[in-house]
Computed example of a mutant assay.
Amino acid sequence: MKFLYEGTITNQALRKTQAMHMKRLYLEDLPVIEQVQKEVIDSLPEKAILQPLSTEEFLFILNERGLLIGAFVEDRLIGFRALLIPEIDGEHLGLDLNLSEEELPRVIYQEISVVLPEYRGNRLQQKLAEVIMKELPNLEEKFRYICCTVAPMNIPSLKDKFLQQMHIGALKEKYAGMERYILVKDLEQPTVRYEHHTNVKLDDLERQRQLLADGYVGIGFQLVRGFHELEFAKPVL
Rank of each mutant, 00 (worst) to 15 (best):
I219T: 05
Q37C: 01
Q165A: 10
M133A: 10
G215T: 03
L171R: 00
I112G: 02
L99G: 01
S43M: 11
E229D: 11
E195S: 14
N63F: 13
Y26K: 04
K201Q: 14
Q164M: 02
E102V: 15
N154F: 12
I69S: 06
R180D: 01
Q125E: 13
I155D: 08
Q126D: 04
P31V: 04
F72N: 02
E91F: 15
G177F: 15
Q165D: 11
L212D: 01
E74M: 09
P156R: 02
G177E: 09
K159I: 08
E173R: 15
G177S: 10
K185H: 12
N199R: 10
I9Y: 02
R207T: 10
L27E: 10
Y119D: 00
A129I: 08
K159W: 05
E229N: 14
A71P: 05
Q222S: 14
P52S: 04
V73L: 06
L53N: 03
K161Q: 12
E179R: 14
K174A: 05
I41Q: 03
N138C: 07
E74C: 14
F60K: 05
G66C: 07
L202I: 09
E46T: 12
P235W: 01
D204S: 07
I78N: 00
K159A: 11
V73P: 00
R144S: 04
N63V: 09
N122I: 00
G90P: 06
E56K: 15
M1L: 10
P156Q: 00
L27Y: 08
I9N: 00
K172H: 15
I61C: 12
G215D: 03
I41R: 05
I146D: 03
L139Q: 09
L136F: 12
K234Y: 07
E34A: 11
V115G: 05
E195R: 15
A13R: 11
Y175G: 07
Q210G: 09
L93C: 07
V184C: 10
L99M: 11
P190S: 07
Q189R: 10
Q210Y: 08
G90A: 14
M1T: 08
I61F: 14
T10H: 08
R76K: 15
